[in-house]
Design a protein around this nucleic acid. Structure first.
Lengths: 313, 313
DNA sequence: GATCAGCTATAGCGATATTGTATAGCTCCA
DNA sequence: TGGAGCTATACAATATCGCTATAGCTGATC
């Protein structure tokens, strides 16, 4: 058994193909084929089932893959232990965000890494919670900021923020940050919202129910940009978090007002896979994100209520 | 980094010598020298301090050794996962017991291993809880039966038994298994007990306080054999678990009676280190020990109350 | 049904890495 | 002071790995 074989196992398992793994690893496909064959011979057990267009893990292969992954983690820990604490970390890390969060967090996060760990390769992925969950489980990303998933399986989550949602209207709508709107005032009014598979939509509908009203959802659009455009052109109002609207408000393209009775909020968490130890890289990333969120809330840029332990910013 | 380098690191660390490791591994000493050198070069940190007659780990080397050991454990898990469940296990395992428990458990435990896993090298260690805790943390033993430690740090413990303690007197003392003695009857009577650093002593003194009496501890001795001899020669009574006295009672050298109001008991647990995964070997050992304890209690040889899930015996 | 694309597996060869042999040099002990 | 015991380096021998070429299979498309 050699480390190169375990590494090959991990990549082939992930990609389902020797050819794709060869391309990724920069090694000829027959070499990988032989590595897998030699590993299977040594363990006397087939790890993959071959089919015409690739190969998939057997049950036993899956079991062994977990151990192989832990080996890689320990090797990374060895490298981390060997490095001085002050030595910049190396490596790659994938971090996932919902799109709106990515907009806010990306620049300061990249700046923080650039300063402390310039040789780390960051992969920042913006996607919706469902995709991010998937990628976390599959190990394609190492941590993610998520809107609180309903059934978060095998994650270790650290609460970050209860994010306030705001009523968004055109500039002449009379909406103002200083004048809160009771939710029941939306009764019968045309609103533009994301589709029902969106967490935000669920929250808004729960608030409507709580306020005893029904919403007139004239248009469904999952793109915030589309929703903003439609609002600006007088097609109705929407309900969104403030950060994506911040510039539009400053430029008098849109107006926003807080909602009350009830106050719609979304719960933001920082999530790591529970079945893999958190490397120093991921820990630094998580701490940095937490600090950025705290900073933005405290400066009033991101309205909401901080949760959990506050990182120094 | 290669597995052969990590294996070399482990063996050299243990033996303190490249030459000895070379002999053990059947590889030329210069080859091992170079492996260590290459590992140190890749990690950019010295792992060993060389001296005239060998080499010892640096602090950083010790830290990295722990990860290397975990890598080996994972590789062993890979091999174990690959092997048929019915295949006998190989390897070595260290198991610790308090001396009295060792007396009871050793023979059936060795028999069970001999039957199911004859190629496993057992190392059975009898010592007091303090030492056993130390060795568990240091990785010198893989699991241990312990009397419930007050501050068990980083252990995963599985409760086994609440062991009853008995009043032990000379054969003509009138003590009988069928006639329980109230604890307050010991008021002012000479008793022989282990020293205050002994868990048993603590329990007995707690019971005395609860019964509202004070004990006249005429002699302190930590050896059960010594205590038994002193009791036999009429120097006082003692309080001990029944198993070490079992043969003496049968041979009419000593007599024993249960104590009540309160009943003194010791809590026995099976402990594994929490920071290392439990190998199949350790799991088999733990299950076997649990079964032996259950068997002895159910046959009346070991008076006490079984705890936790009962293993089939 | 034929053809082509996409994939894995094997053979053979060259390059690279690892191990063995020889030996230098150091420390420690008698 | 000499010898034992140890590590480190140089060079040669051997083993391993990766590459190229290609066979053979499966599945999709025409």
């Amino acid at each position: 058994m050699e480390l190169s074989q375990l590494r090959t196992l991990i990549h082939v398992a992930e990609l389902g193909s020797l050819s794709k793994a060869a391309e990724r690893l920069g090694i000829a496909q027959p070499a990988l084929s032989r590595q897998i064959r030699m590993l299977e011979d040594e363990l006397a057990v087939p790890l993959f089932a071959r089919h015409g267009r690739g190969m998939i893990l057997t049950d036993k292969g899956r079991e062994i893959l977990e151990h192989a992954t832990r080996v890689m983690v320990e090797l990374e820990e060895i490298r981390a232990a060997a490095a001085d604490l002050d030595t910049p970390l190396r490596g790659r890390i994938g971090i996932g965000f919902p799109p709106t969060v990515a907009d806010i967090v990306s620049v300061p996060l990249v700046a923080a890494f650039g300063k402390a760990h310039p040789q780390v390769e960051l992969r920042l992925v913006g996607a919706y919670t469902g995709y991010l969950l998937d990628w976390l489980h599959r190990g394609e990303i190492d941590l993610a900021v998520l809107y609180d998933p309903h059934s978060a399986r095998s994650l270790r989550s650290q609460p970050l923020l209860l994010e306030n949602l705001f009523l968004i209207g055109p500039p002449d709508s009379g909406l103002s940050a200083t004048r809160a709107i009771p939710f029941k005032d939306l009764d019968g009014r045309r609103v533009l919202l994301p589709s029902t598979r969106h967490g935000l939509r669920t929250i808004v509908e729960q608030c409507a129910t709580e306020a005893g009203i029904s919403l007139n959802v004239a248009v469904e659009a999952d793109s915030y940009a589309t929703l903003k455009d439609l609002v600006r052109h007088g097609h109705g109002w929407t309900i969104l978090p403030l950060p994506p609207i911040h510039d539009d408000i400053a430029a008098n393209r849109l107006a926003a007002a807080p909602l009350i009775d009830p106050v719609p909020v979304r719960r933001l968490v920082l999530s790591y896979p529970a079945d893999r130890p958190v490397l120093r890289l991921a820990r630094f990333a998580g701490d940095t994100i937490s600090g950025i969120v705290t900073d933005h809330v405290e400066r009033g840029i991101w309205p909401g209520q901080l949760l959990g332990q506050k990182a120094s910013a």
